[in-house]
Each structure stands twice: as structure tokens, then as C-alpha cells.
Design a binder for these strands. Structure first.
Lengths: 342, 342
DNA sequence: TAGCACTGCTTAATCGTTTAAGCTTATATT
DNA sequence: AATATAAGCTTAAACGATTAAGCAGTGCTA
């Protein structure tokens, strides 16, 4: 019960495998295959339920019709959803996706890249993590097609499609100010990643823009690896500062989850004691007793465009890198409602 | 700048590719390769940074060292975590994982299977969905190795590793009864899936076991596709019945998320107005104003064992199917706290 | 009546690895 | 001295598909 190969069809039709290949690839015209014979071959192929062998095709063509998707953290629902969208869109373009999660760890990310390069994926979509600049540069040097998603390195000229993190944070800050909050803090990751800096810069500029002097003690940075330990003291300090904050922006979903848990423990009331705006999006935000205002990144568009860009890149030996920034949408809910109306 | 192949090494060493292959596969002894030559070949391979071509190897061996993981719904955090665990464990065994989500749709599941079979994955780990019995039977018939995860078909003799859903639901029910609740409802999926029936049976038997007569109107079934529309009336009916429920078991995570949102809208107080126990696990449960009691399935063990089972199955032409049931752990929290202490 | 174009097919190389079988030499055995 | 054994290689086929090049045969033109 071996699988059916071109050879089997060829034998049954009493012709060479070449002819069969021409017919089944629709090259009968260019290759001057007789009509009758073409029909016969197609018939037999159908009867035997022939399925071409991907491996053989790939070996010959050098293309695997596979793309590698490297996520920073698959347990983050934002990325999980990116994965599903990329998968669907890739399928629509005839590609299969192999997903890997770096868990924000550059070594793991490097391993994943290596494994997938060995597996000869045709290209990558990457949500890069801290300290992965070199890996990305290596891809550029090796001329491996890839697109960065949601995070990019301004110092490296690559294709990317990202949310405008600065703009989003700015909008988040402005929103709080508009709603009457004055002492606004932010909890962000301690990270050399550009997108994180942008979020911080956006937040600071929102204050600036409204002539609220930014105070260093309003900005707390915690490490991804020690998030549970470090978020708590960060919040403690924010609410017990000389100028305690009355609103807080979480720079990521993970920070929000941890922070909100602790805020619950402290029996702080959102938004009366503390208003909240967060990046990321998830069911957890809806379920909170006071639904959380968040910055909705255009997941669908991000994912689809990433695939589109990558496919183009893989098809044509490319020109200039395409770089796209997309706007996040602020979804205003109770956690940041106007102080006036309280 | 083509990739380095065996041939390149062979040329540089002035030998045949066969010899190179023997050496690099550690078969120098059996194949009587001279020590010097072996050293020379290894040396050159290193210099050229030789990486074997997976495609060629796979084509020859018929093995791709790839496994397909088909999930029922990747946006469910339970499955997302399963994915990550399976991926890690597979890697440890030298396998790469291709993930697909069927979104609880048998057609999509069938498509995924077909695509991955064409891609010649060596085996599958499957969280099957409704009406996918035939697909599973087909795998059996085609002698494609696979392991069912978390859900199985009692009518088909397959390997599987699953939570004991009956037992878990029974425990959930008993827990509520122990804590003083008497009128316990359940919201489940309308589904022909065995695991769902088991959860329902467990719930009913918990009542029975405590001599609480089960009432049909306490059990509501909604359709996965129309979850948002159907959960609300289900809850409405449960709380306005002649014997309105004072506790509610959600049979899945998705049901809980939707249900709790609505319960919030209704301004019902958990657990005073309504106690809650749910299947599934997620950050959302921690974040709820009143942390949700849930049945923790042993994700890590489930995933690891599934991979282990599959690897064994793929290595040896197997014997009897291995079938494993694992216990879920009830994590008791505020949403089901004892009525007495309230 | 050679020359040409066209039709319909086959041959054989190629992608990169693996591996059974075979071919030289050199060494050991009787 | 004749033969067997072993050591150290090479050859070549195979996995399955693709495709450039080539070979007959037919019909047409000049």
C-alpha cells in the first residue's frame, strides 16, 4: 500500500513519467502533449487518487511552501490570535505555517530560527524579542526573506509591519488626561526593545503635551522574567509616592494581568482609586468587574499584511523594504471613565 | 552561495559521497572507513559548516520528523498552553510541530488533516471536535500513527490521553454541595462529544449521589457557534426557574467567559447570588473580582504524555492502544465558598 | 526531393542523501 | 603457493518530481 507516485501513473498509461508530470502540472500546451493522452493521464491520476509528494517537489524546487512564525510569547492571547490569523492567511496563499514561541528569550529565538532554517522554510514572520538584533541582521545577510511583526529595530533596514506604539501610548495618556486624571503612572518592561521605548515616549509626551510635568517616580520598569515579584513593589511605590498616581497605564497585557491581580488584593477600586488603561486585549479585560480601557491593535490587518508582504518578498527578489505603521484604537470603557461623572 | 552538500565535502576530500555519508552518520565502524580519512572528512564538514538537507533525508527515509498537532480551538488558553508544551516536548524528541486549529469545525479539521498528511507528518496529536469520528477512523484504517488528546471516542479503539471528565465534573458538583449549595445548574455545549456527555453525567451523578433530584431545567445546552446569543437566555432561565439555581457549573472556559460577562451585566453577585465552578483555566479567572473555582486539568502531563505515546507509537509498529485518564484537580476559591461562612 | 516545421513523445540529468553491493589491494591462513 | 579474509574504498540505485534536450514521424513548402 505504498503511496501513488508519478511512476505508477506512467506505468498504467504506458508512457514516461515526464509526460505525466507535464499533464498534471497543466503544461500540456507548452509541452505538446496529445489531447487523448492528456485525458487518459488525468483519468488515471484521478482513479489512483494521486497526491504529489511535497518532499520531492521541494527538494527539486528548493521551495517548501512553508513559513516560520516566531512569536515572542504564545501564551499571550494577542500573539495566539496573531498566530491563528497568520495561519489562515498563509493557507490562503498556499503556505503552511510552523509556529514557535521564543518566550521573550533570545537564545530560544535563535534556536527556533536555526531549526526552521534547517527545515528550509521559505521565509519568516517574526515578533522579535530583546537582544535578537544580531539574529535579524544575520537573516538580512543571508538573504532569507522575512517580515518583522509588531516590533522592529530602527537601526536595521528591514521590512516590518507594526502598531504605532508611540501614537497608541500618546493617545492612551491623552485620554486619561481628558478624563480628568493628572497624576498618571506607567508600568513597562525593562527592555531594550524599541517598541517599549516608544510606548514610554508616547506616555511621556502625552503628559508634556498637556503641560503636566513628568515625574521619574511615575514610570516603573520591571523585568519580564521576574514580573510577579517586581510588579507589586512597583505599584506600592506608585500609590504611595509623594504625588501618588490616580491613573495607571500598563504597557503590556502581561503587566496588566499581574498588576490588576495585585490591585484586587489591595482592594483598590478601579477607577475611583486608580484609573486604568492597558495595552493588549483579552477576555480578561471584559471580565474585570470594571471593564478595562485598552488599546486595540489591529490584529487582523497586522497578520494579513505580514503574510502578504512576506509572500511578495519571497516571490520577487526585492527592492526597498516596506515599512508600515498601523494605528491602534483606544477602546474606552469604565476603567478610565471621566472623573467628572463619577 | 549554494548550501553545502555532501558532494562538496566529498570533492574537497577527494572521496565518494558514500564515504562522507558513512562518517557523518557515525557508521565508520560498520562501513570500515579508515581512521585518517574519517578525521579528514569530519574536519572538512566542520570547516564548511555542513548542515544535512532535511528534505533529501526525509525523501529517502520516508520520515519527516514532524508531527501535526490539531487543536479544537487555539484561542482557548488551555489549548494554547497545550500547544506550547507539546512543542517543547516534541523538540526534545527531535520532532518539529505543525499546529492547526479546527475551531471546533469538522470540515476544517478534515482539511488540516489532509494538508498535513500531504506534508507527510509522521504522526498526529489531535484534540478532536464534533463529527470528526470518521476522520479518526480513517487515520486508523490508513495506519497513520496518532494520539487523541483530552477528548476521545469510546466507540473507536485508539490511543488517547484525556482528563477524566466525569470524575472532574462529579468533584465539582460535590464540592458545591459540600459547601451548602442545593440547586446547582450547568451550562454545557450542545455536542455529540463524549467528553461533554461525561461532564454532564458527572454533574448529574454528583447531585444523585447526594440525593438531590436532578431537574432538567437546570441543565442548559448551547451551541458553540452561537455561544454569545444562547448563553444569555440560558442564564436567564436558570435564575428565574421555579427552583432557581444558587450555583452554576460552566462546562468549558468559553462558556464561563461568556456567562460571567452576562452575570456581571445582570449585577448578580458571585457567590452570594450565584456560586460558580468552571472547567478550564486562565488568567481571566484570577482577575475576576471574586476568583473563580475551577477544575485544573494537568496540562503539562497531558501534553508530555501525548508526545511520549506518539513517539513510541511511531517507533514501533504497535500492539494494543494505550488509553490513559488523568485526574483534574479542583482549585477551590471564593466563587464557591461555603454558604455557612458567608 | 531535399529541407523545414511541427507534433507527440522519451531520455536522462538533477535536487541531496542513504546504503547494498562490488571492486581493489593488502594481510592472514593453510 | 594458493586461497581466504579483511580493510578501505567506489559504484550506482533509490526516494519522487521536474524539465531541458533530443528523437521519430508526419505534412508542407519550394
Amino acid at each position: 500500500m505504498r503511496k501513488v507516485s508519478l511512476k505508477d501513473i506512467a506505468q498504467k498509461a504506458q508512457v514516461s513519467t515526464a509526460l505525466v508530470s507535464y499533464v498534471l502540472n497543466g503544461k500540456e500546451k507548452e509541452s505538446r502533449v496529445g489531447e487523448e493522452m492528456a485525458a487518459k493521464i488525468r483519468q488515471i491520476a484521478q482513479e489512483l487518487n494521486y497526491q504529489p509528494n511535497y518532499l520531492a517537489q521541494s527538494l527539486r524546487s528548493g521551495k517548501t511552501q512553508t513559513i516560520g512564525l516566531i512569536l515572542a510569547d504564545i501564551s499571550n492571547p494577542f500573539f495566539a490570535n496573531v498566530a491563528r490569523i497568520v495561519e489562515d492567511e498563509a493557507k490562503r496563499n498556499g503556505y503552511t505555517v510552523i509556529i514557535g514561541s521564543s518566550d521573550e528569550n533570545a537564545n530560544k529565538s535563535k534556536d527556533l530560527l536555526d531549526v526552521l532554517i534547517k527545515r528550509q522554510v521559505d521565509g519568516f514572520i517574526i515578533v522579535s524579542c530583546e537582544d535578537s538584533d544580531e539574529q535579524v541582521q544575520e537573516l538580512v545577510d543571508k538573504h532569507i526573506p522575512f517580515v518583522l511583526l509588531d516590533r522592529y529595530f530602527p537601526a536595521i533596514a528591514t521590512d516590518f509591519i507594526s502598531t504605532d506604539h508611540y501614537e497608541a501610548a500618546f493617545e492612551g495618556g491623552k485620554h486619561l488626561i481628558t478624563n480628568g486624571y493628572q497624576r498618571i503612572g506607567m508600568i513597562a518592561y525593562e527592555s531594550g526593545m524599541f517598541h517599549m521605548d516608544e510606548r514610554i515616549r508616547g506616555y511621556q509626551n502625552a503628559l508634556n503635551d498637556s503641560r503636566i510635568p513628568f515625574r521619574e517616580e511615575w514610570l516603573k520598569k520591571v523585568r519580564f522574567t521576574y514580573i510577579e515579584q517586581e510588579v507589586k513593589p512597583a505599584i506600592d511605590e506608585l500609590i504611595s509616592a509623594t504625588e501618588p498616581v490616580d491613573a495607571l497605564i500598563f504597557a503590556t497585557y502581561g503587566l496588566a494581568i499581574n498588576g490588576l491581580k495585585y490591585i484586587n488584593e489591595l482592594r483598590l477600586n478601579v477607577p475611583d482609586d486608580l484609573a486604568i488603561v492597558s495595552f493588549g486585549q483579552a477576555e480578561a479585560f471584559d471580565l474585570y468587574y470594571c471593564p478595562i480601557t485598552y488599546l486595540r491593535q489591529p490584529i487582523g490587518l497586522l497578520g494579513q499584511t505580514a503574510v502578504k508582504l512576506l509572500v511578495e518578498k519571497m516571490d520577487s527578489t526585492n527592492k526597498e523594504p516596506t515599512q508600515i505603521l498601523m494605528k491602534a484604537e483606544l477602546v474606552a470603557r469604565e476603567s478610565s471613565k471621566s472623573k467628572m461623572s463619577q
